[in-house]
């Protein structure tokens, strides 16, 4: 390696300082959140907790284990992710495949394309959308959370571009052998597209896991809230954490050793865990899948 010039050395040091500080601003808030959730409430109130728990106290997590609202909404979110993502993937693949054909092979493609492009350009506003969901009788059902967003159009475009980049010879050979489009899609295109499908699946999981507004407006009864909608209610009106219906003795004891801040921190942290678990996979597929899907726009 060549010897670095003095200016280069100074630059490298500054570069590392800037990049590491940026990385720390992304990491430390979560370390702080974890430390607060594990600390004693008086230490938190006194502002003593920074990045390490003070007077280790697990009662916030005990509270979560006994909080049926938290657990219930967590389960609703899991259910929503499973159902919602399955629907997303099927609808995305079915829509992307025909649109990936050239208009020479599939004449109506242009018309269909414009039908879907329009949905990217014109976003309907809140109240008419709400009224539609209401009139379909979806309020307070899980379908209100999975059907309106069943076709995430940008993910569909990523899938479409991926399909389009698959070698055309594969399809031509299959057609000559007498295979129909259903066979070509499920037997050739889908197996060849696993990296892209993995990326899209992860996108959809994160979207469903993080969505909160639909839960808030489409669920009249708070016990139907998915996790992020429940968390929204405790973040924006902190008093609601402590409102527990008919507390048991165990609960009453726990509530005494908690503060809004520690209970909230613990719940936010637990909600973060699934994303952290998925994170290595997200990283692995995100860039590859995204770049592959968008090379030829």
């Amino acid at each position: 390696m060549k010897k670095m010039s003095k200016g280069r050395l100074v630059f490298e040091i500054f570069n590392y300082i800037i990049l590491i500080s940026a990385a720390l601003t992304c990491l430390l808030p979560f370390v702080n959140l974890l430390a607060v959730s594990l600390s004693n409430r008086s230490a938190v109130a006194a502002g003593e907790v920074l990045f390490w728990p003070v007077d280790l106290d697990l009662s916030a997590y005990e509270f979560i284990l006994h909080s049926n609202r938290f657990i219930r909404s967590f389960l609703i979110s899991l259910q929503r992710v499973a159902l919602g993502v399955a629907i997303n993937i099927v609808v995305i693949i079915l829509t992307a495949y025909p649109l990936s054909k050239s208009s020479k092979d599939f004449k109506s493609r242009t018309v269909y394309s414009w039908f879907f492009i329009f949905t990217m350009l014109f976003v309907p506003s809140m109240i008419p959308s709400f009224i539609v969901v209401q009139n379909l009788g979806l309020i307070d059902t899980i379908w209100a959370l999975v059907l309106p967003g069943a076709l995430p159009i940008f993910n569909m475009v990523v899938m479409l571009n991926f399909f389009r980049n698959l070698p055309k010879e594969l399809e031509e050979a299959a057609l000559i052998d007498g295979a129909g489009h259903w066979t070509i899609l499920w037997r050739i295109f889908v197996p060849l597209s696993t990296p892209s499908i993995a990326t899209i699946t992860l996108f959809c999981i994160v979207n469903h896991w993080n969505a909160w507004f639909d839960g808030m407006i489409y669920m009249n009864r708070p016990e139907n809230y998915p996790l992020q909608s429940y968390l929204q209610s405790i973040v924006v009106t902190p008093e609601s954490i402590m409102q527990v219906m008919n507390p048991t003795d165990e609960m009453a004891r726990l509530l005494l050793s908690l503060s809004n801040q520690t209970a909230r921190a613990a719940q936010l942290f637990v909600a973060t865990i699934p994303v952290l678990v998925a994170y290595p996979f997200l990283q692995k597929y995100f860039t590859t899948g995204l770049v592959m899907g968008s090379v030829k726009g």
């Binding site: 959140l33 993080n210 992020q228 973040v235 936010l268 998925a278 997200l282």
Partner: peptide
């Protein structure tokens, strides 16, 4: 990858 709910808190 985190929701604005968690980040808002």
């Amino acid at each position: 990858f985190l929701s604005w709910i968690i980040l808002s808190g």
